[in-house]
Design a protein around this nucleic acid. Structure first.
Lengths: 341, 341
DNA sequence: TTGTACGCGTTATCAA
DNA sequence: TTGATAACGCGTACAA
């Protein structure tokens, strides 16, 4: 085909479209700007040419001049993937809906935060969503470059950045109260690592409320939020000579492990011999073998809130940081003797 | 501080570094190029200035001229997130290790493939990894623009694109064979939607091998790969008046649903009354309440292979498409009467 | 409303 | 080895 000869190998540019339509390059550019002053005739001519060449503005080149890449960096760890795999999907959907794109950065042990935030900055992202603890120095670096930062289920010391969290502490205060009202008096808590932020909050809320209710002693053991460690922690608790009849776990995976350890290894009945409560409401929690009482985080709402806060701050970088907290929903199933209301 | 007065609000550019170091801008650029000819003295001077200004080359501007963005688009659906949440993490780690970045595109029902691939192309990505079915026309568009495409657990018709898949059919041929040797003669299969590619392959392998063994009839019902649909499908099968003593499911989620339906709704024993086999080896499969016999996909290997193929084709776009298939590992647990070897 | 000319921050080319 | 200059593809003053 003779007419296709001059079709360039790569993708068409605005110059190609301009040549084909017989107009200037800037006219083409204007046709792809939402509110440009342009005649209907011109618009039709240009769009026809653009369609023929499969042209769409090069987002990279555009961002160089507009100083808006429409790219948002999302930082996650493997733990995030395990606990709430849907968060990434939800964030991406919420972002795409607003015309924003998601550049993913998975944090591993070998790859430090420091290098990561450097990489993030090189891509001139419009904002950062961190589903992992971000050192204050890194937050400051973003702030300095005018990049909006929103933390997911983390809070920045000194409220240096926006954050959206589930109210872990309140939820577990409630659980403490209800277990107490359900008749329990001796408690244990299977926590995550001592420096795991969400685990800390969940533990604190639980212990604090029990203290207010006159229960001063809670047996606490630390796992790593995995099923396996929940299993091990339960066995360790049972091997001690302290009595307890309710175990609250920092997350569902550990609660499921604890439940299986109690039932299959020690032949205890749940909840007759021991009550178990988790956090997250993972898929397995509602199934017949478990029927785990737990707390569900409003993941979709949280994702949307994260994106809203980010968008506002991209539009107006002067906006002050806001710390948002959203209530979790207690899902009462069959794994614990718990007060109804 | 007087000396900080001229520090620009945004991030420093190569010009800022050049000025501070007292050299030309192109000298700065060279210092960040791997194999540039540059004197040790110059390098030190420039790197010192760069460090002081927290300078790193603007990846966006660089990509404009090098025609390499070091960005790879990854296309997923919600199903991917549910079935193999770890794949995203593994892909990202493998990519980052090679200096590539991951731009995520979540496909929803309302957002068609067509718009998505258009968006992908606008960002001038170096390659595309699709964990979802990609229409041939879209593959062709990428090809035309010289963008490498690798499919994950999908194959392109006519081998138009690279693909890396688990050998679903072989694994289920093996399962058919072993169940048969284990004494089973009447089979049922709980499949995914009729047009779900991996479900099709798993079904075909299973039915085909049974045919070779002289078993011509297999009761097939279709779910949607969810736990809930597995549960429903099992009840439907049991309500029919056809007898069967082994049920193979297109994935683990459905197998777990089927297992719970059989045990908790119909009070059947697994595997004494009925054998059940799944596919994927999700976390819940190995736990005491289930002990599901299933097939594990070599997810990490597959991710690495995907990235390797992509990288080769970015380096040399002329390379022909390669269809790679990797064997799944049969994990024998307690949910089925199955031959040992 | 349209076209001309410039600049975003970088790498690549070429002469010094 | 170094520095001046031209691209990359686009948006946007400004003049017409």
């Amino acid at each position: 085909m003779k007419t296709d000869d001059k079709r360039p190998a790569g993708s068409a540019t605005s110059y190609d479209v301009a040549r084909l339509a017989g107009v200037s390059q800037s006219a083409v550019s204007r046709c792809f700007k939402p509110d440009a002053s342009i005649s209907e005739k011109m618009r039709k001519k240009v769009l026809a040419a653009a369609a023929e060449l499969h042209y769409a503005p090069n987002a990279i080149a555009r961002s160089l001049i507009t100083r808006r890449s429409n790219i948002v960096a999302v930082l996650i760890t493997e733990a995030t993937t395990r606990v709430t795999p849907e968060i990434l999907f939800q964030l991406n959907v919420a972002l795409l809906r607003q015309g924003l794109h998601l550049l993913l950065f998975s944090i591993t042990r070998e790859m430090g935060h420091d290098d990561i935030i450097g990489e993030v900055l090189r891509y001139k992202v419009d904002g950062v969503i961190a589903c992992t603890t971000l050192p204050p120095a890194q937050i400051a670096r973003c702030r300095q470059q005018g990049i909006a930062v929103v933390l997911y289920n983390r809070v920045a010391p000194g409220e240096q950045a926006c954050s959206v969290s589930c109210d872990h502490a309140s939820a577990n205060r409630d659980i403490a109260e209800r277990l107490h009202r359900g008749g329990h008096r001796r408690f244990a808590f299977i926590a995550g690592a001592a420096d795991a932020p969400v685990s800390q909050l969940r533990l604190q809320g639980f212990v604090q409320r029990l203290g207010e209710l006159g229960v001063g002693e809670v047996a606490v053991v630390h796992g790593d939020l995995s099923y396996r460690s929940g299993h091990a922690c339960m066995l360790e608790l049972l091997a001690r000579d302290v009595a307890f009849d309710a175990v609250v776990c920092a997350n569902d995976d550990m609660a499921l492990g604890a439940m299986d350890a109690a039932r299959f290894d020690k032949l205890l009945r749940v909840p007759q011999d021991i009550s178990i409560v988790g956090f997250d409401d993972v898929a397995a929690a509602e199934r017949p073998p478990y029927r785990l009482t737990t707390v569900r985080q409003p993941v979709e709402d949280m994702a949307r809130t994260v994106v809203r806060l980010l968008l506002e701050r991209i539009a107006d970088p002067g906006l002050p940081p806001v710390v948002t907290t959203m209530p979790g929903a207690l899902i009462v199933r069959a794994s614990a003797h718990i007060a109804a209301d």
